[in-house]
């Protein structure tokens, strides 16, 4: 202890500097630095990408990157306003692009899981675009959201969108020692990391097949009795790792209970059970806003009232 104190006496000013620095810039400590899905965002004015002949897109270092430039413009020319989206989903899966919460366009990924889609006809304004994928069984990926300022006459490329896998489990409760099947879809022939979260986070690896399907038999003998969560992510290469899926809950107990297949929906906030969270569900929840005794299935936070918290849970799962 005495030695420690001597050390602090010696480096007193350095400590003080760090304390003041972190008080002023706490985000340095707590920002999300594990952003390993580098979406690239580039823009240019005009019809042709000025970077196209010069070695392709800016690879981007983390989160998003910007760039681009302009060309000599004739003010009489009406330049198109285009937003291009490209990335990877699952082989032959459906990919949805939302504009301000409404489905603007859908496309189908190719057998290698690549997708690209573009749309035009936008005015100068701020738009919030969201992207998500849906696998062959209707399970959905996590969402990518891009609130972006679009200027008339520019082309914006949003590339390297690497969607998270989908995930499902075969049981809602599994007898300790029995297997829990964790499965879903991702990009083909790539490594899938499955996280099982209880007191301690455990990681397991699987590999997706030609169609992107993956399956892992989890031996639950290593887990404690009680509630657990599982989620997965896929790894394209060292620098490109997808987001995690939304976690799924399961119980390790004394009996096996198959997951209820007729359950309304996996999506929290899908109040009318149509496998989408959209304006209909929002309207149903808005009807109960600040009303007494809302139905339990609408009170997503189970606090006996409909508040911003319930709308937030719905907004997280929004599919358009």
């Amino acid at each position: 202890m005495l030695r420690m104190n001597n050390l602090f006496l010696k480096y007193n000013r350095i400590f003080l500097f760090f304390v003041i620095f972190f008080i002023c810039f706490p985000q340095i400590l707590f920002s999300y630095t594990t952003d390993l899905h580098p979406v690239t965002i580039t823009a240019y004015v005009g019809m042709e990408d000025p970077n196209a002949g010069g070695g392709g897109n800016n690879p981007g270092g983390g989160g998003s990157s910007g760039g681009g430039g302009g060309i000599g413009l004739d003010p009489n020319i009406n330049l198109p306003t285009i937003v291009n989206f490209s990335g990877m989903a699952y082989p032959l899966s459906k990919v949805y692009i939302l504009k301000d919460g409404n489905i603007a366009v859908t496309t189908i990924a190719d057998p290698a899981a690549n997708f690209s889609v573009s749309f035009s006809g936008l005015n100068t304004n701020t738009y919030t675009f969201s992207v998500y994928g849906e696998d062959s069984s209707g399970r959905k990926s996590s969402f990518f959201s891009f609130p972006i300022y679009i200027t008339l006459g520019t082309t914006v490329n949003i590339g390297n969108i690497f969607l998270s896998p989908t995930i499902d489990i075969d049981k809602s409760e599994v007898k300790k020692g029995d297997n829990l099947v964790i499965f879903g879809q991702s990009i083909p022939k790539k490594e899938i990391v499955i996280s099982v979260h209880s007191d301690q986070e455990l990681f397991y690896k699987s590999t997706s097949n030609n169609m992107g399907g993956y399956l892992y038999n989890l031996d639950t003998s290593v887990l404690e009795i009680g509630k657990h969560q599982t989620k997965s992510k896929s790894i394209l290469n060292e620098s490109q790792i997808s987001q995690y899926t939304t976690p799924l809950n399961f119980i390790v107990g004394t009996e096996n209970k198959l997951k209820d297949k007729v359950e309304c929906s996996l999506l929290r906030g899908d109040l009318n059970c149509d496998n989408h969270v959209n304006l209909i569900d929002f309207s149903i929840m808005a009807y109960w806003y600040k009303k007494q005794n809302p139905p339990p299935k609408i009170d997503l936070s189970s606090d006996g009232k409909i508040s911003l918290v319930d709308f937030s849970i719905m907004a997280f799962n929004w599919t358009g």
Partner: peptide, 25 residues
Amino acid sequence: FSGIIPNGFDGVIDPFNGSYKKPGL
């Protein structure tokens, strides 16, 4: 006022300067 932003909002991206995100109106 009370409202939602489906799928979240962490700042408006300027596509010509992707490293900086602006506040949203």
